[in-house]
């Protein structure tokens, strides 16, 4: 009995000492014809008959255990060899095997940040066609055919349709579709009759914010602008209004924010003025409300238009609008 236990202990020790590299030597020592196990088997007939059966059984168990251990050791050895053949793969300094990765356009990253803010403020989202009727793009926005403000627009025409020149073209559509009270963002592509340059582009992306309800006034416009601009630039921004004129708002104004880069001291981004021109805004003209089926005596509202490209360029310090719209992947994937 003790002999078997002795062999088992001896094997454990040898297993550690010989290791995987010498698995074959270990096999010879224990399992070959002249190995330790064979010698023990030869010993069985010499034992007293009442011990043979039990000894044989335990010897078999020991043999199986040793065989299994040596087999495992041999397999580990061959795995290790093939592993080391593929040695290259364990060099972490080598570049990884990367599946194709995508990225949202920086314009839409900025847009979606803005949308998130407006969503929290309770705004809905509404869109309309790019190829628009003259009615929604001009007439319903209080641009009569002879109106001098039409000179400010340079419009691409397709038959009796126009490629919408501003996201405001969706204002009357939204009023007609959603009714009042209304708080909505109207996003989309707009077109101008322009050649491509660093500052001008024939196609760009903007949205209108439109709020109509009872008792809405300039103060609500001011609060909304301050709130969303502060949230977007992640600091409390100072807003400045300059009187301006668009036929579809009255009062109308241009809105500047105190330059978020230099704090108003004057820098490259704000052109030294300390102010960033951000957007045009105003109270919805009663004619527009009427076209939208809303009683201007009871309801009033405000609207403002945000150039998403302008906001993106400000936020990411991009100075050439072409980078946004030409599709250069090296540039776009970096942001």
């Amino acid at each position: 009995m003790n002999e078997l236990e002795e062999v088992a202990r001896q094997f454990e020790a040898d297993l550690l000492e010989f290791g995987a590299a010498r698995a074959e030597e270990l096999r010879i020592k224990y399992l070959s014809k002249k190995g330790i196990i064979s010698k023990l088997i030869e010993k069985i007939p010499t034992l007293p008959p009442d011990q043979r059966r039990d000894f044989g059984k335990r010897l078999n168990e020991l043999k199986s255990r040793i065989e299994a251990s040596i087999k495992q050791l041999a397999e580990a050895q061959s795995d290790r060899v093939s592993f080391e053949v593929k040695l290259l793969d364990n060099d972490l300094t080598l570049e990884g095997k990367r599946p194709p990765v995508g990225n949202k356009h920086v314009l839409f990253k900025a847009r979606d940040e803005l949308f998130e803010i407006f969503k929290h403020m309770g705004f809905s989202f509404f869109d309309g066609p790019e190829l628009e009727t003259d009615f929604y793009n001009f007439e319903a926005l209080n641009f009569p055919p002879y109106h001098p403000a039409r000179d400010m627009q340079d419009t691409l025409m397709v038959g009796d349709m126009v490629l919408r020149t501003h996201s405001s073209a969706m204002q009357v559509r939204a009023l007609q579709a959603l009714g009042v009270p209304l708080k909505a963002i109207l996003p989309g592509r707009v077109y101008r009759r322009e050649e491509v340059s660093a500052r001008k582009y024939p196609v760009f992306y903007q949205f209108d914010a439109l709020v109509v309800g009872e008792g809405i006034g300039v103060g609500h416009l001011k609060w909304t602008l301050e709130t969303f601009l502060s949230a977007f630039f992640k600091k409390k921004v100072e807003v400045r209004f300059r009187p301006s004129y668009f036929p579809f708002v009255e009062p109308g104004n241009e809105v500047d924010v105190r330059c978020v880069f230099c704090g108003g001291k004057g820098c490259n981004v704000c052109g030294g003025t300390g102010w960033l021109e951000i957007l045009g805004a105003g109270l919805v003209h009663p004619k527009v409300l009427e076209y939208g089926g809303v009683d201007p005596k009871r309801f009033s509202g405000f609207a403002f238009g945000v150039g998403v490209d302008r906001m993106t360029m400000l936020k990411y310090g991009i100075n050439d609008i072409r980078l946004l719209y030409e599709g250069d992947v090296r540039f776009l994937s970096s942001l």
């Binding site: 403020m121 708080k183 300039v218 609500h220 301050e226």
Partner: peptide
Amino acid sequence: YDAVPSLPLTEYVGFSETPT
């Protein structure tokens, strides 16, 4: 414009989003 007070929007309007 500086003299005009800022007034928060308080009216609740239900959310909607055009399917497109």
